[in-house]
């Protein structure tokens, strides 16, 4: 959990910093400075266009995090209310419609549809966000509903009903806070999947477009140079691995820390 937090914070910090300051301008190409090894001015060297790798990676972190974060936001914002409402009206036609709709989205191979969306509406970071975000909706709806259903059978929900509270109020006061743990853990998982998906889309040229820096694009560029400049493929890939690893470790740590069963044992 500690490692996860440190890694996540590191990338988030780099991304935040890149909003204000980068060591070098990543739009400027300087062929004379190309493919340099690590040095004081370029701590991680330069790429085949002479751009500073550290600056590229920082800007790439910004793109990855922004895409994944908004995509998770879409999933949480739409999926959680749908899932909670489906659980509150369990067995009704509404529940049925919501869950069948979910199943349908699940039936689509997500990356294929993401490719389709970006292909139709043109490749851009925004379309990548939409394409990834849509597939987050059923995930959060399922987790929210699955977590909420057992709670609805508990006596404290019954007590709230006896106290005259309606479904909406009970969902907000009793259900949501008690499924929040599950949702937070799921959010870290979807976040890391979002980063992988964004990298994959950018890699095939359907994500963020130049001059926006992106780890996936950097890898696609590096692939053409794999015989001559194999080191260019290493850093962006490592950045993806570490970021995803950090998020996953953080998610696992959060799950353990938030699991009420484990907490009860500790008390």
């Amino acid at each position: 959990m500690l490692i996860g937090t440190v890694l996540t914070a590191l990338f988030a910090g780099a991304a935040a910093l890149s909003l204000f300051w980068l060591p070098h301008d990543i739009a400027a190409l300087d062929i004379s400075q190309r493919s340099l090894g690590p040095s004081l001015t370029h701590p991680l060297g330069t790429d085949h266009f002479g751009r500073d790798m550290l600056s590229m990676l920082m800007a790439g972190a910004r793109t990855s995090i922004a895409v994944a974060l908004v995509a998770v936001g879409i999933g949480v914002g739409l999926g959680v209310p749908l899932g909670l409402w489906a659980a509150a009206t369990r067995g009704s036609w509404l529940d049925e419609v919501i869950m069948r709709g979910n199943d349908l989205i699940f039936a689509f191979p997500s990356l294929v549809i993401a490719i389709l969306i970006t292909a139709v509406f043109g490749p851009s970071a925004l379309n990548a966000i939409l394409a990834i975000g849509i597939f987050n909706i059923p995930v959060f709806a399922r987790v929210a509903r699955g977590g909420a259903l057992p709670l609805w059978t508990l006596d404290y929900v019954m007590a709230a009903r006896v106290a005259g509270k309606g479904r909406l109020l009970i969902s907000a006061q009793h259900i949501l806070p008690n499924v929040a743990n599950l949702l937070i853990v799921q959010a870290t998982i979807q976040f890391s999947l979002g980063i992988l998906a964004e990298a994959a889309l950018s890699y095939v040229g359907l994500g963020a477009q130049p001059p926006t820096a992106s780890w996936g694009r950097m890898l696609a560029d590096a692939q053409t140079m794999i015989y001559t400049e194999p080191q260019l493929a290493v850093l962006p890939g490592l950045a993806i691995v570490l970021m995803v690893l950090g998020l996953n470790l953080l998610g696992d740590g959060l799950r353990d820390a938030l699991d009420p069963r484990l907490r009860r044992v500790r008390m």
Binding site: L154, D155, Y156, M158, A159, A160, V162, A163, G164, K165, Q173, H174, P177, N178, P260
Partner: peptide
Amino acid sequence: SVVFQDPYGSFDPRWTVRRLVQEPFHL
């Protein structure tokens, strides 16, 4: 009003006794 069987499931684990006991004031 009502008292249920399960002394564990009867209360929202995230609420204090103050809030739990006062919940019926919603009525």
